[in-house]
Design a protein around this nucleic acid. Structure first.
Lengths: 206, 206
DNA sequence: AGGCTTTCATAGCGGTTACTACGAAACCCA
DNA sequence: TGGGTTTCGTAGTAACCGCTATGAAAGCCT
């Protein structure tokens, strides 16, 4: 079976950089949210016309889902990074620090695309909200698994609550997005992370 | 000066219960957000026609701001409750428990109206977002002041970071709203609160 | 009763929404 | 060079957006 070269398929080729356009669309969704970003906003930022958007990406919903994948990366990769961390504490530390930095980037909008884009929800976008929620559940699941491993390996005390502890980290992550949107700078977000990590159970004696 | 009885002013009286209609509008905003709630959605839930909404509430933005006041209550009252708490820890505990309960009520939408309604933001609603952010800043300011008082009264250690600690509580509060929207039940939210409060500095010896 | 004021229901305003029909243009292949 | 396939720009679709003009109706006043 010859692999098909997608750059050599019949018909008139795309006249724009699809990846670059997708990245611009991601930034629009990041800044304005899903339902509050109009197709006109998107095409203006992407530098293309409306029919070009629809032929290249399907429709607004599929474009958003592609933007989410570009933003969040491969779900399996996230889980792998968390699982490979030396300790659950290190994983939580890295997750929160990365969030604090990502939410206060100089060249990107404030806050988290996932949190900003779908906090508001009409019934028509329920499936979009579920997709975004799945990304969060995936991260929390990986962290919870890592915590449970630390418990079984006696790195964390036996009475540690994996669900509550991983949930607290996720809650702080989501909260950081709101703080960043409200104008919080990177230093204040990192201070919050520092305080939150003090809730981590100390390893048992022995 | 005779106080004017507002129920006895000239002209045809309102044919509906203004407070009840406002409460229904609040629930719509709570569930669907500010920009994603249409005037048609609102009038349907309020049981009134479009002109009645505009004569009674001004426009959609003013209606939302009234709904925010109904939801959040008097800003000064919140500050007073936090200030009157026996300790800053008690204030944080009460705030987080109240949030966990409010976000998972059986007769109200999931999550926090303030967090849900304005997380997404077009440029046209920037002032609405600022108003909502002010409510959050008010709560955090009250909590930060209470923490500083505990420090000066040697209830909290001298090295406590009031900004970071109050910010962590606020971040968890906002995060709880996202967790509730994603389907988290009251018990799991309270477990997160319990874990987060373990980050509270222990009182210094003596 | 008559005048004044305000809200009522009907209907519709201009503008924006996501999305698409249409014909021309640009590529590959034979 | 001509056929097949796909994207291009232009233009426009029906539906919805927040909001309002209009005249009738309902209240208080003298």
């Amino acid at each position: 079976m010859e692999p098909v070269d997608p750059s050599r398929r019949p018909g008139r080729p795309l006249s724009f950089d699809r990846d670059a356009a997708l990245r611009e669309a991601m930034l629009v969704f990041w800044r304005h949210g899903y339902e509050t970003s109009s197709v006109a906003d998107l095409t203006a930022a992407m530098g293309i016309t409306t029919p070009s958007l629809y032929t290249a990406f399907g429709d607004k919903k599929q474009l958003f889902l592609e933007a989410v994948r570009l933003y969040a990366g491969d779900p399996a990769a996230i889980s792998a990074v968390v699982a490979a961390a030396p300790t659950a504490h290190a994983a939580a530390h890295d997750l929160l620090h990365a969030a604090a930095r990502a939410y206060t980037g100089m060249t990107t909008p404030r806050g988290c695309l996932l949190a900003s884009a779908t906090a508001t929800g009409s019934v028509a976008s329920a499936d979009v909200q579920r997709t975004v929620a799945d990304v969060r559940h995936n991260v929390q699941g990986a962290l919870r698994d890592r915590i449970e491993r630390d418990i079984s390996e006696h790195v964390l005390p036996r009475e540690t609550d994996p669900e509550g502890l991983s949930g607290m980290v996720m809650a702080v992550m989501q909260g950081l997005s709101v703080m960043a949107r409200d104008g919080g700078d990177r230093a204040s977000l990192l201070a919050i992370v520092s305080v939150a990590l003090r809730a981590w159970p100390s390893q048992p004696a022995g």
